[in-house]
Amino acid sequence: MQKITLEKIIYFFTGSVPALGVTFAYVIVSMIFGTIIGTGLYRMKSSHSKVAGFLANLYVTVVRCTPSLVMLFLVFYGLPLLVGGEAGARMEEWPILTFVCVTFSIFIGASSSEIIRAAVEAVPAGQAEAGLSVGLSGMQTFRYVTLPQMLKNAMPNIGNTVILLIKEGALAYTIGLRDVLGQAYYLSGREMNAYAVSMYIALTLIYWPLTILLEHLFAAFERALTPWERKGKRAALRRTAEGGAKYAG
């Protein structure tokens, strides 16, 4: 059995933590582009055109049935091939991170279209009508009435997606990305994997607390978005006097 030493765990931990930047980079980029794709898909689904609806549903089904690993390989090997010629050859020199971002944007596009639909449907039309009836403009109604409720409904799903993305992204080490897992494997490989168990412990100590932290963070966002639903004496007070003044002005 390999020896597990605290020294090695600390070595792998401190060596891999800086690579969190890479992880967050693809999470943020994929979330942005994925939401754009997802919004488009949602518009297609809710449009009257049958063709558009069918295409959007087909996209979601196909993506849902594809393992991330297979999609990752398809994009990594296929994108330069499909573009072809001079441009395709130049693509092969792109940083691996780009391919990872493309892959996960495709995935997030599918899941976010469902999240957006659920979020929109959860806000009754009466809410927007009420906003308009008290004299808010269309934009104001969206900004102060509809959007916070939509975001609040979508927040648990967004949180789950981000956490899933961080964990699934670890697979990108198979195409050579140095995110947290990739960096740890690289460091471990340099020592002929003699301290692999220490590396596993270090990785667990990075991923596990990170997930728990993100879960709490998104729950806090959810509460912050809907202060009127907060329970307890202080929240009730804020809702009436000070809060009332704050939200009116």
């Binding site: 596993y200 667990t204 990170l210 728990i212």
Partner: peptide, 14 residues
């Protein structure tokens, strides 16, 4: 919580 908090690929390697 541990299983939900770690990547599947890490669990597999362990």
């Amino acid at each position: 919580s541990l299983i939900r908090g770690t990547p599947v690929i890490l669990q597999i390697y362990v």
